[in-house]
């Protein structure tokens, strides 16, 4: 064939299904992550707390185990109540933050730094699919760390306590599931947005912590100087804690939130403000992603 006839011809073969295409990014990402010894160790270590919780539930429902340990009244020592499940979620969510700041920065920034985005988008793969594919890596891993063990513990408690316990405490299950998803979505969006804007991976990871801790410090300064509690709007863990409190306990609450996600007594903000602030944060992250995830960059 003459060279001049070798022009562009689109691919005419069969395409894989959209779901299979979406799975390509997480598949390769998981392969990469699997090679990291630190990550594997961290991920396995993150199950220590749920295992301890499972042990507590088991021991509480096993009279012979209690007798063996020589413990009387252990069921009153650690009650399986809202604090128990919120503490589990709070602790696992903090570990999820570490995981997100370790994995998140490496998801998008290498593609942008090496101008590889056009290679993805030249294929039958949209920007949304690209973002969803990258995000699914974080969503799956963080789900396995937060609501999955939480729900398993809920089921274990229901099984040992008697099935009637579950409908009576369905709010706990809803709180674990939806509360974890609120946190997971915020973390995933923030990690991807920072990864897209900060090309240096360590800096993006550091900035992720900075957003949480410096913003919380800034909120505390606002509260201190202005003698108000509106500064908590800068504190992401406070906002998420408020949402969790409502999910777990409804309008009347007996606790002040989970570990790391506390809502100080007397400093409560209207719930809609917390939702609005979280939505604004997600909106900013989506805008940042939309600005950066483009097939071609216009350089002025």
């Amino acid at each position: 064939m003459a060279v001049y006839k070798k022009t562009y011809r689109p691919y005419e073969g069969a395409l894989t299904g959209p779901l299979a295409r979406l799975w390509v990014i997480p598949r390769y990402a998981f392969e990469d992550l699997h090679r990291s010894r630190f990550l594997n160790t961290f991920f396995i270590a993150s199950y220590i707390y749920p295992l301890i919780c499972a042990l507590i539930i088991y021991v509480q429902h096993n009279a012979s185990a209690l007798g063996l340990l020589g413990v009387r009244g252990a069921d009153r020592l650690i009650a399986i109540n809202v604090v128990f499940f919120m503490s589990l979620l709070g602790w696992q969510s903090m570990l999820a933050l570490f995981l997100a700041s370790f994995i998140g920065p490496g998801l998008v920034s290498p593609d942008l730094a090496n101008n590889a985005l056009s290679l993805y988008l030249a294929r039958p793969f949209s920007r949304v699919e690209y973002v969803l594919g990258k995000m699914s890596v974080l969503l799956i891993l963080m789900s396995l760390m937060t609501w999955v063990p939480g729900m398993l513990l809920f089921l274990l408690q229901g099984y040992l306590e008697g099935w009637s316990w579950m409908p009576d405490h369905a709010r706990f299950a809803a709180g674990i599931f939806f509360g974890a998803w609120v946190w997971i979505l915020i973390l995933a969006l923030l990690a991807l947005a920072l990864s897209a804007w900060v090309k240096w991976k360590p800096a993006a990871g550091g900035l992720m912590f900075g957003v949480f801790f410096v913003a919380a410090g800034f909120g505390a300064v606002v509260n201190g100087v202005e003698r108000t509690s509106w500064g908590h709007l800068f504190n992401i863990s406070y906002l998420v804690g408020s949402v969790w409190l409502r999910l777990f306990e409804g309008a009347e609450h007996s606790t002040n939130g989970a570990v790391f996600f506390r809502v100080p007594e007397g400093e409560e903000l209207p719930l809609w403000c917390c939702w609005l602030a979280l939505a604004a944060l997600c909106g900013v992250c989506l805008y940042m992603l939309a600005r950066k995830i483009r097939g071609a960059e216009v350089v002025r």
């Binding site: 410090g217 505390a220 300064v221 201190g224 100087v225 003698r227």
Partner: peptide
């Protein structure tokens, strides 16, 4: 005024210690 100069001085000290030294200047 709803508060005294002394209170503002303590608030600034708190802001300096907890924000500037532990977060702002550090980061």
């Amino acid at each position: 005024n709803r508060h005294s100069i002394g209170e503002d001085s303590i608030i600034f000290a708190g802001m300096f210690l907890f924000y500037y030294l532990r977060a702002g200047i550090f980061f």
